[in-house]
Simulated scan of single mutants.
Amino acid sequence: MFLGTHNPKLDDKGRLTLPAKFRDALAGGLMVTKGQDHCLYVFPRAEFEQMARKVAEAPFTNEAVRAYQRYLFAGTDEQRPDSQGRVTIVPELRRYAGLSKECVVIGAITRLEIWDSSAWQTYLEDNEENYAKAREEVLPGMF
């Protein structure tokens, strides 16, 4: 399970050091893809393959399904962390997420999300009030 917030830096070669506590879960390979809200999603390879099977089962005769499949799979890069836990974020994905040197990696249970640090702060500020409302929708009657 991926949890927490971390602040690695993107180096001049486009490499990002993954938080040490996640490296074992990602040692077998990972998939970096365009996420929602202009962040990047990082899935363990097995988790991504499971999701990809579900996406592939959707009827490709549906225009929205084809568009989603194209967007998801064309924007995915397979990586294997090096001995220092670094992965290279390809230029297209860096551009999509607007990544600068300062990044934020958050755990989102089944995936990591990579955000530009200033974009993450803006997202938090813009959505803070929605958190309580979302909790009520996601977990009604729990709290």
Rank of each mutant, 00 (worst) to 15 (best):
V87M: 01
I114R: 10
V90W: 06
W115S: 00
E78Q: 11
Q79K: 12
Y123F: 10
D116A: 03
L99R: 07
N130F: 07
I106Q: 11
A119P: 09
G75T: 03
A134L: 08
I109M: 13
T122N: 13
E128W: 12
E129F: 05
D77P: 13
F73S: 07
V138F: 11
M142S: 14
A132L: 06
V87L: 05
L112F: 04
E129Y: 09
Q69H: 10
D126M: 11
T110E: 15
I109P: 14
E136K: 15
I89Y: 00
A134M: 05
L93V: 02
L112G: 10
E113G: 09
R80D: 06
S100H: 04
L93W: 06
R80E: 06
D126V: 03
V105F: 00
G141T: 04
L124P: 13
S100E: 12
I106T: 15
T88S: 08
Q121I: 03
T88N: 11
Y68L: 12
L93Y: 07
S118Q: 12
V104E: 05
D126E: 15
V105I: 08
K101E: 10
A119L: 07
D82T: 00
P140H: 00
T110C: 06
V87W: 00
E102Y: 06
Q69M: 08
Q69I: 08
T61S: 14
I106W: 11
A64N: 13
A64H: 15
Q79A: 05
A74S: 11
Y96H: 02
D116F: 01
Y123V: 00
T88Y: 09
A132W: 01
L99G: 09
G107P: 11
S118K: 11
A97N: 10
R135M: 13
R66I: 10
Q79I: 07
Q79G: 03
I106P: 14
P91W: 02
A132F: 04
E63M: 09
K133S: 11
V90S: 14
R135S: 15
V65C: 04
L93C: 02
D116Q: 02
Q121F: 01
E102C: 00
N127M: 00
T110R: 14
G75V: 01
W120M: 02
R135N: 14
G141A: 01
R70Q: 03
F143G: 15
I106G: 08
N127P: 08
L112E: 05
L112V: 04
A64C: 00
L124I: 04
F60E: 15
R95F: 12
E136A: 10
K133Q: 09
R135F: 12
Y68P: 05
G141W: 03
N62Q: 10
P81S: 01
L99V: 02
R111F: 03
A67T: 12
E128K: 15
A74D: 06
A67E: 08
P140T: 01
G85D: 04
R86M: 00
L139Y: 15
Q121H: 08
T110S: 15
A119W: 02
G141Q: 03
E125F: 05
M142Q: 14
I109A: 13
T110L: 05
Y68D: 01
P140G: 00
